[in-house]
Amino acid sequence: MKTMLLLVLSMVAAARGATAQEDAQCVRERAAMVETIKNYARSRAVVSGQQGFSERVLDAMGQTKRHLFIPERSCSIAYADMPVPIGRGQTISQPFIVALMTELAEVAPDHVVLEIGTGSGYQAAILARLARRVCTIEIIPALAEAAAKTLKDLAYDNVSARLGDGYAGWPECGPFDAVVVTAALGQVPPPLIEQLKVGGRLVMPVGADYGTQHLTVVEKIAPDKTTTRAVAPVRFVPFTGSQGR
């Protein structure tokens, strides 16, 4: 009995040691990811128009455990400078693009933000660290269910997630200070502009499926007036829904 107890204790200690080692690796990989984002922001300033990212955005990127939002749960994969497949033909964007979209949305602590395309829930988690409330919609049932569970398990209590067609937005959750769309469409959905507050920003990739797309910022400067600017060439999966492909 004593030998069995010692064996169990040894196994528990080994498991704890492995977990601690993995956690330490994740911390290192995440810190390296943030440095890569900073370097990208400097080197691509001419393209993106961003001379650097705010400390709030960098802190959110540095504190959010990206590896918990991908199927492999691998730190080396999660924090690499690349998009990662999450199933059902969808991806989680590369860290720099997530940071760039977040920066362009200019999210403040009292803001309510709409995200179209929950995916794995990672972008929603980043936004949740910056905003008062995040409302996120995913049209693919399996992804919507998995993301909602992950966000709940990680105690992102200021995120409301639902299954649905994001083209129509979420009027009951708005109006919104910012809208972030994580899939490409040839035009900005009018319902999303309607649900955006005056002074608010919408950030999304605009362009053809798997073709030329531009990360675009729409600012609502009056109830019936907006300004639009293309920030950088990007490549996103196509928008899925009643108005998508």
Rank of each mutant, 00 (worst) to 15 (best):
E72R: 13
T36S: 14
A146L: 11
K152T: 11
A32K: 14
P109Y: 09
I70L: 00
G211Q: 11
R56Y: 00
C26F: 01
R162N: 09
A15L: 15
A184D: 01
E106A: 15
A148D: 04
A155F: 13
A24V: 10
V113L: 12
K152C: 09
G49A: 08
F176L: 04
V206R: 09
V112K: 03
E35Q: 10
G119A: 09
V47Q: 07
N39K: 09
Q21C: 07
Y40D: 01
Q213V: 03
G52F: 07
T216L: 06
R66L: 11
S242V: 06
A184W: 06
P175Y: 01
T212G: 01
M1S: 14
S10F: 10
G174P: 08
P83H: 05
A78M: 06
G199A: 04
P83Y: 10
V34A: 01
S43R: 10
V198T: 15
Y167N: 04
M101D: 11
Q187E: 15
P85C: 11
G121R: 05
A20I: 06
I77H: 02
A146D: 03
M1G: 06
M204S: 03
E22I: 02
S120A: 12
R133D: 11
T228Q: 13
L196K: 06
V181R: 01
P191K: 09
A178I: 04
K149W: 12
Q25H: 05
T64I: 12
A222E: 14
A131I: 02
Q94Y: 14
P83K: 13
A124K: 09
E172I: 11
L127R: 02
R73G: 05
L202G: 07
D23H: 12
E106K: 02
Q90F: 00
L143I: 09
R44I: 03
A80H: 07
V98Y: 03
M1Q: 15
L154H: 05
A178E: 05
P189Y: 07
E138T: 05
I116P: 06
S76F: 11
S48H: 11
